[in-house]
Amino acid sequence: LTVQERSSEQYRPDTFPWVFDSAPDDIVENTGSGGLLSGAGRNQDTANDLLSDSDFTDRLLGRQWGDSAGVADFVGRGTTHRPPELDNGVVYGPARDAVLAAADDHEDQVAGS
C-alpha cells in the first residue's frame, strides 16, 4: 500500500511544481504493488486483521490502482475466514463491514470517476 501511495505521486505533478515544470513524460504504470497485495492476501489471518482496521481500508480504497485485480484478490481473501472445522470459507464480518464502509466513503475512487 505504501509503494502504491508513493508511485501514485507521479500522476499528480501539480502537487510538486518545484519538481516538474510540466507533466512528466516518463510515467510508468505500477502494477507491481497490486501483485504484492495479492501475495500478502495469501496470509488470510493477517488479511482478516488488516481489513478489520478502518484506517487501513480507508487507505486501501482511497487509492487509484493501475490494475485493481490485486486489491480485489486481497479483499476477497481478507473478508473470508475459514475455520478449521469447515471446508469452505465464510464471510468474516468485521472485515466485510470495514471494507464496505470504506467503499461507501470512496465511491468515486472505486468507480474510477
Binding site: S68, V75, L100
Partner: peptide, 15 residues
C-alpha cells in the same frame, strides 16, 4: 482509472 475487479468483489460482499 476503472476498477472492475474491485467492484465485482464489493458487489459480492454487499449481496
Amino acid at each position: 482509472v476503472d476498477h472492475p475487479e474491485l467492484r465485482d468483489v464489493l458487489d459480492g460482499l454487499r449481496d
